[in-house]
Design a protein around this nucleic acid. Sequence first.
DNA 1: GCATATTTGTCCGTATGTATA
DNA 2: CTATACATACGGACAAATATG
Lengths: 236, 236
Amino acid sequence: MVVITADDGPVGLEADRGLLGRTSTAERVADVLRTRIAEGYFPPGSRLAEHEIVEKLGISRNTLRESFRLLTHERLLSHELNRGVFVRLLSVDDVVDLYRIRKMIECAAVRPITAPPAGLRRLRIAVLDGDQAARSQRWQELGTANIHFHQGLAALGESPRIDDLMQGIFAELRLVFHVMADPRRFHERYLVRNHEIVAKLDVGDGAGAADLLAVYLDDAERQLVEAYAERAAEDS
Amino acid sequence: MVVITADDGPVGLEADRGLLGRTSTAERVADVLRTRIAEGYFPPGSRLAEHEIVEKLGISRNTLRESFRLLTHERLLSHELNRGVFVRLLSVDDVVDLYRIRKMIECAAVRPITAPPAGLRRLRIAVLDGDQAARSQRWQELGTANIHFHQGLAALGESPRIDDLMQGIFAELRLVFHVMADPRRFHERYLVRNHEIVAKLDVGDGAGAADLLAVYLDDAERQLVEAYAERAAEDS
DNA sequence: GCATATTTGTCCGTATGTATA
DNA sequence: CTATACATACGGACAAATATG
């Protein structure tokens, strides 16, 4: 039996086993784990025991180990030799690095724009999703929508490799958010700015959007670094 | 320790099997294959048959498959479900994407510099290695030195994730070089420019270096795209 | 510090599904 | 259509390292 019984929705793996599955089992398992990590079901720092997951998902150890490899390379898991795999726990340095990259990539993608870009629709949808999530007080979804918005910004650069990079960057960022105490306080204040950036892009003002974005990202970084410092103070 | 016997001989992995290796067997195997691919021993488009490599290296299929996973994620191999793994054969679009990223990252790393950076020594060494390789007419090494030089430039940004990204980008670039007919004609002309860029950095003129770099990369991209077009014309 | 149980690392043989000659 | 070769996934085995008492 290959059904995960979680609180909300079980994920069936056998659904397309036997049929012509487009993906391998290891990748499907990796998808499941990735989702669980993104949701915070496996919090940063926790260990993923082979035996448990093998039993729960009804797969072999070798297959699971391949999934672990995939996720380790995405920096979502850290693999310690002979000790096991753990959900990564990011340091302040990591946060700084993530934001350095976001500033570089997102601004570079937006700045050259001189006319309303093709990807604008996607951005609008993300912004509206964020507004709606905030109104319904679903803060987890607000964070997701916000990430989609910025992923859309990076995608304006139209580079598949950059898109890949940023997908990883944002997945790591989710790990940061999970150690943050109050997702509402963090995400809510940026809703207005998202609208402003879209407005700039709407009139083809890429440079203006990039400037807004740079300030935006500096603010967010500062807030996160402070939160991390507080957490460190609590720990001591 | 992994000993590679350069010319013909297979690779001795069993030397440290049983001992406490710092890295896993799969990673060591991946290292070997990565080197082979970089050297052109496995040319782009060729298939890597499981049983051959298993036999040559004296490892198990599962271990090799883990290595394949690693290299597939680095975009050096393409993994076609139920068909096997192949050394990637890059398209013109790939070349354009690679250079778009190089321009973005390398220039962004260099431009903010206002004083002679710490990584200058590494750059000098790469440049001198290139000069020496050219004098000895070792064109393969010239290409390697050139890549090290640009890796050093990207490293000025001091971001571990960017370093990772660029390591992958340059590994892919090597695949492009392997389909190029004449490595000498391609690499030799850039030796002088490397010196010019170092000179700019030497006086803390990051902006000047970035401007040189942008022209440099545009030229190199154009040359490669043209060579690809020629090759496509020959094939038809 | 020591002996134990648990967990991971590595590898094999095999059954099944899939593509190609 | 059959035969062959190969990839996928599984279960089991044993060694090595770690955690536990």
